[in-house]
Design a protein around this nucleic acid. Structure first.
Length: 597
RNA sequence: GGGGGAGUAGCGUAGCUGGUUCAACGCGCCGGCCUGUCACGCCGGAGAGCGCGGGUUCGAAUCCCGUCUCCCUCGCCA
């Protein structure tokens, strides 16, 4: 067997060399970032994952090496041996971390040639993302991608180290498992051995981690891949990763403590400070004031309810909505009175995207009140509104009248949009908050039944348990989300560990005994044999990496991500399979094989 | 399922109110020159027929229809 390196051995990484290494002979291996041929002297920027260093080839130093350098092209893989020396006076490159030194080449060898790459390996690349994904291995050579992948590794490492210190076991759970009804659409995998039956890929290891608690593992974690067959977004992939945690014999505060410590260690990697204790806000307050359960607390512009002021109003739009159980809420855009009508039209369209039927506005401009709705409002109502909204000259008020859900959704998103537009968000600030006291369940208008807000194993808070049958909507869950700057980092709950209580929750959800046994029988069975009190949490690893690295696409934090249609541009997945494979699985397709051009 | 944006040399774009810009500019690439550059410089060169299919027209990147792909987004999804 021949040694592909010909006995050569790397001694150093390019980017780690400095003046301290002056005079040392080093052996480097990497890629040619760039070649500058001056006829009599050739410079090479040599790149490995640590960075760049300049190599000088001079025929007076070594003519063989010089000749080899003549062959070099972009992205050739090369070996260079030479001496570290400081650069001549006036030739220092302050933009390069190794800019004070260079390598005087004494030997060089091409380890592999490379075709001209379809995209240039440089920091400020201007390339379509589809091309980056197709040639991901080239994209990954870019320093920015290298940094992100490295950061991701370090987050994994910190997570493992910390949780290990705290006595957690890292336990793998099945990828091939069974489909469970709630939540997202499952990815299915046909079973060859069991004709007509399917595995599902896990949406999360939820059931397994609870069963591990019954199994006496007490403290479990996993950096777990999860799969959901739903439409993609800038921050959503069909397979994504969670830091999944479950503990026995704990209450909410224990989970908070572990979570806060973990988040502290993770964010320390990018020198973001996490407060000693993270403040807590109720779900109802978050929804009331921010219109969302993941509020961005870095700025104000809170939602204000003016329903009581306009309940009896002449203005039908407001009054009728309130009569029908809706509400009228608004936000104040400080200094927003000067915005153009077309801007307000834009806000109206934006509101419509989130389901609003309209957007009412009042502008306090030039000592006057300008608004299409004031003529329907009494003096009292107008002053009431101005008081409630604390509106001053120059302010713009925007109102939505609709069901509480739509009102919150519209204004919550409008608040964010306007804040971003008007640059009201202090970028340097970080506001962590725990959101607690979620409703246990929610009425699903579409299917006319209650569905769990979190999942069906979430424990109700003790005081509300008696309400389960009479007033299920009033029941609060012992669930919590950790939110940073309007982004949900993770969420979890204390679980039900009592069979009776679990049955009552199932009942409230309209899941009868039969169905419960069918779907979760194994969990119910497990709970018969001494299930400890337990609870846990799961953090969205990809989104955390996005925040830490300041990227706005989840694709940038995953080595091999999928496109919006769930395809992999690198491998061409998903792809058709052979007839023989399908036959073995007893699968008949009722689609024509597609012809792509 | 709905709304919006994009698809022109290897890459990023311009041209898109149709015909002496039916293809240009920058980067990259190839060749030559250059012993201190580092977005090297200078000289020369190759490379696309405008995502794909169809139509309108004397004539289409430029207009129309269909279709594929990528991105953002509502719904969906924690």
């Amino acid at each position: 067997m021949t040694d592909v390196l010909g006995g050569r051995k790397r001694s150093d990484y390019c980017g780690e060399l400095s003046l301290e290494d002056k005079g040392r002979q080093v052996s480097l291996m990497g890629w040619v970032q760039r070649r500058r041929d001056h006829g009599g002297v050739i410079f090479i920027d040599l790149r490995d994952r640590s960075g760049l260093v300049q190599v000088v080839f001079n025929p007076e130093i070594d003519s063989t090496a010089f000749k080899e350098a003549d062959r070099l092209r972009t992205e050739y893989v090369v070996y260079v041996r030479g001496t570290v020396r400081n650069r001549p006076e006036g030739n220092i490159n302050p933009d390069l971390s190794t800019g004070e030194i260079e390598i005087k080449a004494e030997d060089a060898a091409v380890l592999n040639e490379a075709e001209t790459p379809p995209l240039q390996i440089k920091e400020n690349l201007e390339v379509g993302e589809d091309l980056r994904l197709k040639y991901r291995y080239l994209d990954l050579r870019r320093p920015k991608m290298q940094d992100i992948i490295k950061l991701r590794h370090r987050v994994n490492k910190v997570t493992r180290d910390y949780l290990d210190e705290e006595g957690f076991y890292e336990i793998e759970t099945p990828i091939l498992t069974r489909s469970t009804p709630e939540g997202a659409r499952d990815y299915l995998v046909p079973s060859r051995v069991n004709e007509g039956e399917f595995y599902a890929l896990p949406q999360s290891p939820q059931l397994f981690k609870q069963i591990l608690m019954v199994g006496g593992m007490e403290k479990y974690f996993q950096i777990a891949r999860c799969f959901r067959d739903e439409d993609l977004r800038a921050n959503r992939q069909p397979e994504f990763t969670q830091i999944d945690i479950e503990m026995s014999f704990v209450n909410r505060d224990h989970i908070f403590k572990i979570s806060e410590n973990l988040i502290k260690k993770i964010f320390a990697l990018v020198e973001i400070e996490v407060p000693e204790t993270i403040p807590i806000m109720s779900y109802s307050q978050a929804l009331k004031e921010y219109g969302t359960d993941s509020p961005d607390l870095r700025f104000g512009m809170k939602l204000k309810d003016i329903s009581d002021i306009v309940a009896e109003s002449e203005f039908n739009v407001f009054r009728k909505v309130i009569e029908n159980g809706g509400q009228v809420k608004g936000i104040k855009v400080r200094g927003g009175a000067e915005v153009s009508r077309s801007k307000i039209d834009e806000y109206t369209d934006f509101a419509a995207d989130y389901g609003a039927k309209g957007l009412a506005w009042i502008a306090y401009k030039g000592g006057d009140v300008s608004s299409p709705i004031t003529k329907f409002l009494s003096e009292n109502e107008l002053s009431g509104i101005q008081n409630k909204m604390k509106a001053d000259e120059g302010d713009l008020l925007l109102f939505v009248a609709d069901s509480p859900k739509i009102t919150a959704n519209v204004l919550g998103n409008l608040r964010l949009k306007i804040a971003r537009e008007r640059d009201l968000i202090p970028a340097e600030e970080n506001k962590f908050v725990w959101i607690v006291d979620f409703p246990l369940l929610e009425y699903d208008e579409q299917n006319k039944r209650y569905v769990p807000l979190h999942h069906p194993f979430t424990s109700p808070v003790k005081e509300d348990i008696p309400l389960l049958e009479e007033n299920p909507e009033q029941v609060k869950a012992n669930a919590y989300d950790l939110v940073l700057n309007g982004e949900e980092l993770g969420g979890g709950s204390i679980r039900i560990n009592d069979k009776e209580l679990q049955n009552r929750v199932f009942q409230a959800l309209g899941i009868d005994k039969e169905e419960a046994r069918e779907k979760f029988g194994f969990l119910m069975e497990a709970f018969k044999y001494g299930a400890p009190p337990h609870g846990g949490i799961a953090f969205g690893l990809d989104r955390i990496i996005m925040l830490l690295s300041g990227t706005d696409s989840i694709r940038d934090v995953i080595a091999f991500p999928k496109t919006q249609r769930g395809t992999c541009l690198l491998t061409g997945a998903p792809a058709e399979v052979s007839r023989a494979q399908l036959e073995e699985l007893n699968i008949n397709l009722n689609v024509d094989s597609k012809d792509k051009n």
